[in-house]
Amino acid sequence: MTRTTRLLILTVAVVLLGAVGTAAVLYSAHRSGRRDQQQANGPTVRTGAVSLRPTTGRRLVVRNLAWGPHRDELATVPADDPQGPRTASGVKCLRFHAAAGTGICLQAVHGALQDTYRAVVLDPHLRELHRFPVSGIPTRARVSPSGHLVAWTVFVSGDSYAGTDFSTRTAVVDTRTWAIDDNLETFRVSEDGRTYRAADINIWGVTFADDTRFYATLATGGRTHLVRGDLTTRTLTTLHDNVECPSLSPDGTRIAYKRRVAGASPDAPWRLYVLDLRTMKETATAERRNVDDQALWADDSTLVYALPGDYGSDLWTVPAGGGGTARTLMTSAVAPAYLG
């Protein structure tokens, strides 16, 4: 083979390799462009002022999960147009809730070696009022109807309620004094009129009735119970079994909650139920999928909750009375709170 022939073969090989590389780049760009186009077809998110005291009708605030520069920011939409354009605040939260102009925002602080977490109390303009370090991964957050109390739950070991190998820590803070009960497990537990003591008690999922009374889940001995808490007497009284992540209705008469059902997968054990506090009658909602969330009452007859979605979670809604059907409320959103 002559030197000229070898050079010709080498040149052809270089040209072919270049063509293949160019084609690969163009194909990748085309696929990326398609993905960008698909993301562009999601909810419109724009920056703007977000207030926890809306002046233009009732609003819904969520943790925005739509892909883009405002992912994980608190964003708001009109309550009657949840699929409309979102106004992003710039404030990022893992868990969030708000009432009466007070917000509780559970945040991650990213470090060089590991993440830490904190609870930040926000004013109506989403400015920080006070912060508290928390000892684990944020999972639940609630504000009392008056805005005077905030509560949060974190995992201090484990990261799922589905099994039994986890431990939680739940705290309540008075925003008027910044006094904190940093572990509700220190409250006295009353079961059937008798004091109950156990080393394996876990408390999570606070929902407030007022500035003294609340409801929560108490777990012990492999079972869960609905408890009514009293901050003045520092007591927890068991009311009903097999209740997790309770949510009190606005009129104070019912509790929405996730309930373990027989025959379900151990990894997806819960269905969404409603308990009448007067009769203790349970009603299954029309949502038949696994719900691992603390549901929110949109009003006295409608529940909102998160289910897995393409970008993390979507919000769904279902009637609280047991009829109707489950419907999508918002895509790419979690941690809702109604304002106004």
Rank of each mutant, 00 (worst) to 15 (best):
G136S: 10
H148M: 01
D192F: 13
R118W: 09
D211R: 02
F155N: 07
A119W: 09
T164F: 12
L231N: 00
A99T: 01
F96E: 03
R223A: 07
S135G: 11
F187K: 03
V134T: 14
T175W: 11
T186P: 03
S190H: 12
T164K: 11
L106M: 10
Q107R: 13
V227Y: 01
L94H: 08
T195N: 09
S190F: 13
T139N: 14
L113I: 12
H130N: 10
V154R: 07
T139C: 09
Q107G: 00
V150W: 11
T220F: 06
V143A: 02
R86L: 09
G147K: 08
W178T: 03
D181L: 09
F96Y: 14
V206W: 05
N183E: 15
T232E: 06
N183D: 15
G90W: 10
G158D: 11
V172F: 07
T177D: 08
T220P: 00
T102V: 08
V206D: 09
S157Q: 11
S160K: 09
A179R: 14
Y117Q: 02
D200G: 04
R140Y: 11
D181C: 06
T87N: 02
A162L: 12
A100D: 09
V189Q: 07
F187R: 05
S157W: 13
V206Y: 06
R95G: 01
F132Q: 14
R169V: 06
L94V: 10
L94K: 05
T153E: 08
T116L: 03
I180E: 14
A100K: 03
T177F: 09
S160V: 08
A171Y: 10
R228N: 02
T186Y: 12
R86H: 06
F96M: 00
R194S: 12
R95S: 01
T195I: 12
G163C: 05
D159V: 12
A198L: 01
E128P: 01
G101I: 05
